Structures are given as structure tokens and as C-alpha cells.
Computed example of a mutant assay.
Amino acid sequence: MHIDLTGKTAIVTGSTRGIGFAIAAGLARAGAAVVVTGRQQQDVDAALARLRTDALGATVRGHAVDLGNAAGFAQLAQLEPECDILVNNLGIFGPQPFDEIPDEEWTRFFEVNVMSGVRASRAWLPGMRRKNWGRIVFISSESAINIPADMIHYGFTKTANVAIARGLAKSLAGTGITVNSVLPGPTLSEGVQHMVAPGESAASALEKANAFVREHRASSILQRVATPEEVANMVVYVCSPQASATTGAALRVDGGTADTI
């Protein structure tokens, strides 16, 4: 299968590292003009430099904006008025006991993990409607199905991603615009590496992350963490013309962790 996204503009939120960066790289290699976002200019610049090496000849650009609030999206929409492919990847996570999570933290997780996707979709959907073509992808998590006891505030936001993607897809019935959610399982992004093995080598982090999967995600069929690129492969496909009949779906790249049929 040859995926050709030439002539399409893709915006990937939270894409300076991890799964977001892998998605940006995959889309760029498929020919899309890719827009990278991050909060710090130095991170954006570093990501663009890597992309230009990973996807030679690709059109890539980036913006340092805080997409954890409405003002950030207003700024980004002015800078990038056109978008054919939107990947709502921006998200935060972190373990915390339920009775120690204050109201402000619940609000912060909701603003970043849920409202960022709502605001982005609302901003660029009119342009997709005019073209009668578009792809919107919400990066959720297997935690949307298996709510983690130590990250309940994170899990509920990932469930919300799935619900919004499904509802938005239904609202676009009969159009050329598809909306889906992708649910990664444990994935060795930079954030996860820092959580399981702060300050240690990549090899050590991989070993510890795989041990975490076997101990705490015993239902995993893969029995290891995924790579960001393995998740990105699914996202690039969903964004392609070949995926035109896939919409309203919750697509799992979880290594079989969610023990449901």
C-alpha cells in the first residue's frame, strides 16, 4: 500500500517528541506538509531539524504556542488557517492517588487533554467542510477502557476523547470527512521513559518499561511496550485516502492489553 498525502496540510498538536513527533514524521514521509507545535521554541526548532533529516525533502514548519488554553488556538489558527489533516495528540499524564488530586489538576487535565482537541477540531472543521475532505484523529489511550487506578484523572480524559471522536464523526455523516480515535497501549515515548527510568539509558528504560508491562499490564498479548513509530503507522493510515471508509472508530494499538473482543 502506497500512502500519498501530497498536497495535504497536516497539523499535529504536541509534536516535538514522542508519539506526536513520530506521527509528524510519518505524515511528512507520506508527502504531507506538516505543522509541528510545542510550547518552547527550542523544542520546536529541534523537532524541525530532526524532521528534515528523517523526511528528506518534506515541507515542515512549526510554531511555539501554548495549546492548553483558548488563546493558544486562536493564535495557531491565525498562523495556520488551512488544515486537511488534524491529529489531536496534545496530552499530559502522571500518576497520582485519587484523594490527592485537587480540583485545579482535574481542570488542567480536562483543558489540555480534552478541550485542546475540541478547540482544534472546531477551528479547522469549517475548512474541511468547504473541501468536503478531511481527517481528524484523537490520540486517546487504552486507559480509556482500562481506567488506571493511579491515574483516574488521565483515564477519564482519554474516555472523553473516544466519545467526542465518535459523536463528531456521526455529526459529519455523509461527508468526505472522517473522525477516529487511536488508542495506544504502553508506549516508550520520552515521557514514559522519564517516568519509569528517570536519568537512565535508553536500554535500561526499555528493560524497565517491558517489565512494567508484564507486571502491571498482564493482559498484554504483545508483552512489551510499543514504539512511537508503531502507533504512528496506524495514525498515518487513518489519515490516508485509503482509510475513507473508516470513521467513528476507536482503533487500538495496545498490543492486546484491553481484554475485550
Rank of each mutant, 00 (worst) to 15 (best):
H2M: 13
I11A: 05
T16S: 13
R17H: 13
I19L: 10
G20V: 07
A24I: 10
A24S: 15
G26I: 03
A30R: 06
R39G: 03
Q40L: 12
Q42G: 14
L56E: 12
R61H: 13
H63M: 09
F73V: 01
F73P: 00
E80P: 00
V87W: 00
V87H: 00
G94D: 09
G94M: 09
P95W: 05
P97T: 14
P97Q: 14
D103M: 11
W106I: 07
R108G: 10
M115E: 12
R119W: 07
S121H: 06
S121I: 11
A123P: 04
L125A: 07
G127I: 01
R130W: 07
F138C: 02
S141L: 02
E142Q: 15
T157Q: 05
V162T: 11
A163Y: 13
I177S: 09
L188E: 02
S189F: 08
P198R: 13
S201T: 15
S204I: 15
A211H: 06
E215A: 12
H216S: 14
H216R: 12
A218E: 10
L222S: 07
Q223V: 09
R224F: 09
P228Q: 12
E230L: 02
V235N: 04
S244E: 08
T247P: 07
G248E: 12
A249R: 11
T257Y: 08
